[in-house]
């Protein structure tokens, strides 16, 4: 879903860089206050996992493929969408600078869509639905994060005059409605795996863990 160079005029690309910098300011403040020692390695493992799984494009119909974003996964595991901003900023920056995946001029827009918007969407949907059923909520949060990020990228490209709004929404919406199913499933599997090996790392198990939480 990475926007390449040349799809956004530089003035608009700059706006998304400014949004990214403001989001990173809040995300770093969140990390400063909320990241404890044992969750730094968790965050780094998730960054590594998301980098690798983003390279694993899954085929969908229409000769197209897609990969997961991971923003909903991070936001749910850390109980904060700001964590998703941090992890996706790292992953997308590495992809852009080392591998030419996503344009350098479009990096701000890519972090805005796949980190900030996907993270907040995934987290918001999870929070809204978690009382119905946690795992269904996680699946729908993953699906929605991909779909809404794709719609937001379409709106950016339509504003830039790069995509026509109507056809852009139809193609981007259809493809990512399908890719979102993979995002939802992988998000559920990844969180189930963490739940099995280290339940103490998940926010909903925190209250149940031992009283000596701090050390």
């Amino acid at each position: 879903m990475h926007i390449p160079d040349g799809f956004l005029p530089l003035g608009q690309a700059a706006i998304y860089y400014i949004i990214t910098i403001i989001a990173l300011y809040f995300a770093l403040n969140w990390a400063k206050e909320n990241l404890d020692e044992k969750r730094v390695p968790l965050m780094a493992v998730l960054a590594a996992f998301i980098f690798a799984i983003q390279a694993m494009n899954i085929p969908i119909p229409w000769g197209t493929s897609g990969h997961m974003l991971g923003a909903a996964l991070v936001a749910i595991v850390f109980g904060s969408p700001w964590a998703a901003v941090l992890v996706l900023a790292v992953v997308l920056t590495v992809q852009g600078f080392f591998f030419g995946d996503g344009g350098i001029t479009a990096l701000g827009a890519n972090i805005t869509a796949m980190g900030l918007i996907a993270g907040f969407t995934g987290f918001g949907v999870f929070k809204a639905l978690k009382n119905l059923n946690r795992w269904v909520a996680i699946f729908i949060a993953g699906w929605a994060s991909t779909f809404v990020a794709a719609i937001s990228i379409t709106l950016m490209l339509a504003a830039a005059g790069t995509f026509p709004l109507d056809m852009g929404l139809i193609f981007m919406g259809t493809y990512h409605a399908v890719i979102g199913v993979a995002e939802g499933l992988i998000t559920v599997v990844a969180i189930l795996a963490i739940q099995n090996v280290r339940p103490d790392l998940l926010p909903w198990n925190k209250a149940k863990s031992s009283p000596e939480v701090e050390k």
Binding site: M172, Y175, I179
Partner: peptide, 20 residues
């Protein structure tokens, strides 16, 4: 991994209004 274009690339092949 599938070598097919991803969702954004596929959409761009169909509707792109600018030069790559």
């Amino acid at each position: 991994a599938s070598a097919n274009p991803d969702g954004l690339e596929s959409a761009a092949e169909k509707v792109l209004l600018v030069e790559e």
